[in-house]
Write a protein that binds this DNA or RNA. Structure first.
Lengths: 240, 240
DNA sequence: TCAAAAGTGTTTGAACTACACCCATGC
DNA sequence: GCATGGGTGTAGTTCAAACACTTTTGA
């Protein structure tokens, strides 16, 4: 009956797709999400977004970072508030009707993380990664929350240098294009992508080249300092 | 020390600007916001966004509607969640440092209302309307919240039929253009605005004309049913 | 007849698409 | 050489800005 406030996160990483038949090195990239298995009613045993109650000692964004670290062991390269949910039918398993639960308001963040090699090592208990196009049955309406986060990502990559969050500091335009293609789910013309990206001014050549390919070595680029951002557009600091 | 959850709203209406020297009928339109004077510390006596604690019996959006009705007596023609604020320095008057206050998380909505004639009659106690370009000193960092809402409105009017919220069911293209000009703060080419608006398909002619002008009577238009929306893009219903 | 706004047409330039083509490297 | 992706050039299209121009009403 007391008011509860929870924070959860849609965490997105890029990894080779599971349907990658070919055993060649690269493979097609796809989006993956870590989910946690619920150990309490409602929806016990179902997969859900990682999160938890808002701690006493931290703000909303910090709480989202904590959930993120717990489930992935990584720092988010990008973190933005998605939406605050607070309907009255909340926290209620609509399949198993029970007594009226506590009122829960939850604030959802979405995050982008760079897929590190040691990520599998930090795989926490009860946490598993799923490709976004092969998600299991989810608790609550988390599937809609994920869809909303994906829509936001796909919209934002068109006008924001957000792909930076998936890449190392130096990268080739082909790698950058692969990120865009994975997020948008369609192929892009390499020539036009190059022109638009360079014309936008968000990226600049480092002067180095990537050696070791079996073809012409591509130039390496980095994001210009002004264009990167861990925080999103312009949400103010606080309010009441 | 207990967790408090509050909901407040940036309510925007379109009215003739105060700097309208000429006494002609029309006048230049501008955005206005209702503010309430605080009757408690912190920031007692300062103007603030209307709002209040989240009631037991209603969801977040309903709570925003309630605050809106209290301060304007109007129904919102458009209502969308803006942001959830929950920093640790919240609810603290930074000029008069006091003892640690309760932890307050507040969820802010933004709303568009049609300016009705009887709106002045419903002017509630402690509520006053201000033009957005002549706001008084505000409590907390509400000025930044308002700036954020304005940025969202200006961005959204470019790709969304949101101007509908400021207009009656039938309107001329000049009236629609005046709404866009007031929101964007610059003049628009009537010819190009007409072509773009009609080509977008969001609007259709009613067949009627507006009589009584002292020039050629303009056609009346209405928004097509599919393009209007009281709710925003696509936020899901609930979550945990 | 004139002022004023409605409404139409036309030119220009920017930006994107599609696709042809050359370049540089490993094999 | 030749396959492969890096990188450039270019014609066609779409779209919006700018602005000249015609139309229709009230006064």
């Amino acid at each position: 009956m007391a008011l509860q406030l929870a924070v959860s996160s849609v965490i997105l990483a890029l990894r080779p797709s599971p349907d990658d038949d070919g055993d060649d090195g690269g493979g097609v990239l796809g989006l993956w999400i870590p989910l946690v298995r619920r150990i309490r009613e409602p929806y016990e045993g179902r997969w859900a977004l990682p999160g938890g109650p808002l701690g006493e000692g931290c703000g909303l964004e910090q709480a989202a970072r904590n959930a993120l670290t717990t489930s992935t062991g990584l720092d988010p390269a990008y973190l933005e508030q998605l939406y605050a949910f607070g309907g009255l039918d909340r926290s209620r398993d609509r399949e198993n009707e029970g007594p009226d639960p506590d009122r829960v308001v939850s604030i959802v963040y979405w995050a982008l993380v760079r897929a590190e090699e040691d990520q599998a090592a930090v795989r926490a208990h009860n946490v598993e990664w799923f490709p976004v196009d092969a998600l299991p049955d989810l608790a609550f309406d988390h599937i809609q929350v994920i869809d909303y986060a994906l829509a936001r990502l796909r919209a934002k990559i068109l006008y924001s240098p957000i792909a930076h969050a998936f890449l190392p500091t130096e990268f080739t335009l082909a790698e950058l294009r692969a990120v865009h293609e994975a997020v948008l789910g369609r192929e892009l013309d390499p020539a036009n992508f190059r022109r638009q990206t360079l014309a936008s001014g968000g990226v600049e050549p480092t002067g180095r080249r990537l050696e070791g390919t079996n073809h012409r070595p591509p130039s390496l680029y980095r994001y210009r300092a002004e264009s990167v951002a861990t925080s999103p557009t312009p949400p103010p600091r606080s309010a009441s």
